[in-house]
Design a protein around this nucleic acid. Structure first.
Lengths: 274, 274
DNA sequence: AGAAGGACCAGTGGTCCGTA
DNA sequence: AGAAGGACCAGTGGTCCGTA
């Protein structure tokens, strides 16, 4: 079997999360809303009332499906690292740190964030190896199956919403580490929060797609071995597309109205499509 | 917009299918079954009773989603090609034909079958072009989206279950046309039905994977431009895997018990995995 | 019987929003 | 307020099985 090594670094800093009660109100059949945000069809959603309560530990000895994983053999309610009370664990929030800097207090740093992406890729490789051995179809990306596998392997601190949230930050780290580091230092110095830093990561990536000339963010992702296992974030894709269109429009306007005072790079994109 | 050309050949031979009543019996909460076929977890399924009746024509002027497609402008109940009565159309069944042979009577030939695969690929390319223009994510395979697009484009004779059913037959046609042609002639001569011919297509494909040495049916599919847009059929994947395992076992046994009277090709695969 | 395809269902990609 | 992640949902891959 493929042995799973859970990095010690990864276990750093968990905070607490009370047992989820989940008593959501059911929205009545309010046809109202007409809610169209900028994303288009953002329909009014109803969430079913549910009173699910995650079992403290999955029922042992009921290896229900075929993704077996080696586990460290701890029994009973493990009261994880003398944290107080009976609350569900939740990762410490991220803060903007410089490269190499360890976060102090109940926080996690950005090196740790990027480390999680590398870990996910390792889990993917293990899932791929198992699939190949069995002659089953083999995922090329970090899929739900991989997240499930990671959880079973004990990496409970990995989850899909988190990883998807920061993919583009990791992308910048992979594609232009210098620029990524500079951005981190700048945002740390300015005392910005993680959300602001995260937003700021989009710009340099769009610039990379522009510099590359093709605006093809897919091929940029796919040509990088560590990045290629991640789906392109919708937002990044939209930004690249929007920026390209803007550039086309500008270049079209300037070359038809005035004498083309914009860059020649812009001109090259004139009416590239249609 | 991307113009869609529906091939005249494709319109050949429709038969009739009465309006679907769909009065399925709801299976009671019969926990019974325990039904485990060779595929593993083949649970007892319940199908909901439904009395859906496909509208004769989709409600015009309600271009509900964003996959617009040029349509030929025929109105009203079009009583498709003076076929008798008011029945839903259904494609003529396939028969085993030689290369170049046109099926007589209410039948379709295998050249027509293979032609459908090429058409699907063309529909995929159109879907890809639209996606690229819009900066949306771009499918690399014939997906549900492509089947939906094909249907909207008027290619109602294309549907997912049919296309998936014969993928491996098309694969043989792509990868070794000589062998495919020979098989067609042999099965026609013997008067075999389409099902038998279809089954027989698996063997030569497994042989190709073996000859290739790697047993990697994915890479065989992906290295062929017309084939690479199709998902590997589960059955074919299983057969390749099973055959490789068998070969490994034989070669392991012969080299440890007797003096290795099996082929050296088999020996090369000895304990290739684990 | 041999075969075409509507329609089902488990598990996916994507991310909202109840939670703290 | 800023942030982590359970859980939801529309649309997918896969193919069964009611249909003729």
């Amino acid at each position: 079997g493929a042995a799973i090594v859970v990095d010690a670094l990864s276990q750093e800093g968990l905070s607490e999360e009370p047992v989820q009660q989940d008593t959501r109100a059911v929205e009545g059949a309010t046809d109202a809303g007409g809610a169209k945000g900028n994303m288009g069809k953002k329909l009014a959603r109803q969430r079913r009332k549910s009173t699910r309560r995650k079992p403290a530990r999955k029922p042992r000895g009921g290896q229900d499906n075929n993704e077996e994983v080696e586990e460290d053999g701890d029994d009973e309610e493990n009261e994880d690292e003398d944290e107080e009370e009976n609350g569900r664990q939740r990762e410490h929030p991220f803060i903007v740190t410089e490269p190499g800097e360890v976060a102090r207090g109940k926080k996690n740093g950005l090196d740790y964030l990027f480390h999680l992406y590398d870990q996910c890729r390792e889990f993917l490789i293990q899932v791929q190896n198992i699939a190949k051995e069995r002659g089953e179809k083999c995922p090329t990306k970090v899929t739900n199956q991989v997240f499930r596998y990671a959880k079973k392997a004990g990496a409970s601190y990995i989850n899909k919403p988190k990883m998807r949230h920061y993919v583009h930050c990791y992308a910048l780290h992979c594609l232009d580490e210098e620029a990524s580091n500079a951005l981190r230092r700048a945002f740390k110095e300015r005392g910005e929060n993680v959300g602001a830093w995260r937003q700021a990561c989009y710009g340099p990536l769009v610039a990379i797609a522009a510099r590359d000339g093709s605006w093809d963010i897919d091929s940029i992702f796919n040509s990088h071995p560590r990045l290629s296992v991640w789906y392109i974030p919708t937002r990044l894709r939209q930004l690249c597309h929007a920026q390209r269109s803007r550039l086309c429009t500008v270049s079209a306007a300037s070359s038809s109205v005035s004498g083309g005072e914009t860059t020649s790079a812009a001109a090259r994109h004139h009416r590239q499509h249609h």
